[in-house]
Nucleic acid binder design. Structure first.
Length: 284
DNA sequence: TGGCAGGGGTTGA
DNA sequence: TCAACCCCTGCC
């Protein structure tokens, strides 16, 4: 039986869909027309269109609740950005993409994506993501393969994963899937843990260090205070906030970002990262 | 067209 | 603290 194709329309203001889908937090979205993207919410393939004052989502068997949660369109963005520190760089980053949101993605898909992200650029991460879907995912609609679950990937060999251009990350992903299958870590249980303990649990997974764990906490578990520091952000923080510091240890930098950027530091980080990466940090 | 450097990180010694 | 891990992209 073919499930019904439907549309959902949500009135929004201050939602920058392009920046949100193109800011290195999700890897399953493709631009298919002016202001229109094709991608996934969990195991549901959807298209989303940015209208003048609304978002229009189309797909089969849409759940408004699941879509709203993924796109976080009910979130009061000004209440979040209002807690950001008021300094020249932060103001420029905010002005550059004022409606940028942090999505709420599936934990396993996020773990897998970020295990694959190490030493890779966004284009390459997307290629790996697509290869994993097409090779191992279930075809839920003609031509649309859902991202493979950890149950599915736990039965896949390291060599088969290597064929998806994972390189040395193949071993990490295969082992992480097997650890989940063996019950060593529960992604569901992490939902209710305090952030520090949740991070420790995630870091038990092979291929998940502090940076990847922080990305998963921020993009999948909604821990908006968590501030992942990668080489882009590190460079940006050093240039923007410590231009004259010859010696700024990693420890001091981490303490600074944890304290300075406040209760939604992860959100602030996403604005800075997107601005630095796409505008070069010069406020274009 | 080919050679080379370097990349959004983790692991293990 | 640091090399090793794969291999793709961008640049010359």
């Amino acid at each position: 039986m073919v499930s019904p194709y439907s549309h959902l329309t949500q009135r929004v203001n201050n939602y920058d869909l392009a920046s949100t889908l193109n800011s290195g937090q999700a890897f399953c979205w493709n631009l298919i027309g002016p202001n229109e993207w094709s991608g996934w919410v969990g195991r549901t393939p959807v298209n989303i269109l940015r209208g003048v004052d609304c978002l229009r989502v189309s797909g089969r068997n849409l759940s408004r609740e699941a879509i709203a949660r993924y796109f976080q369109w009910d979130v009061d963005l000004s209440a979040i950005t209002g807690t950001f520190p008021d300094d020249p760089s932060m103001r420029k980053a905010l002005a550059y993409a004022p409606g940028l949101r942090i999505l709420r993605q599936d934990p396993w898909e996020t773990v897998a994506n970020f295990i694959c992200s190490s030493m890779k650029q966004i284009v390459q991460i997307k290629q790996i993501h697509i290869a994993l879907r097409e090779r191992f995912g279930v075809e839920v609609e003609p031509g649309h393969h859902a991202f493979p679950s950890w149950q599915q990937l736990s039965a896949v060999s390291e060599n088969e994963l290597r064929e998806c251009k994972l390189g040395f990350r193949a071993k990490h992903l295969a082992m992480a899937a097997r650890q989940l299958a063996a019950g060593e870590v529960s992604l569901e249980a992490i939902e209710s843990l305090p952030t520090a303990e949740a991070r420790e649990e995630l870091m038990k997974l092979r291929g998940v260090g502090e940076k990847v764990a922080n990305c998963v906490l921020l993009f999948a578990y909604g821990r908006l205070e968590v501030f992942p520091v990668d080489v882009w952000v590190e460079r940006a923080i050093r240039t923007l906030y410590f231009p004259r510091a010859r010696k700024l240890t990693d420890k001091r930098l981490r303490r600074f970002v944890g304290e300075y950027f406040g209760p939604h530091g992860g959100y602030a980080q996403q604005y800075l990262f997107h601005w630095i990466r796409t505008a070069g940090g010069n406020g274009k």
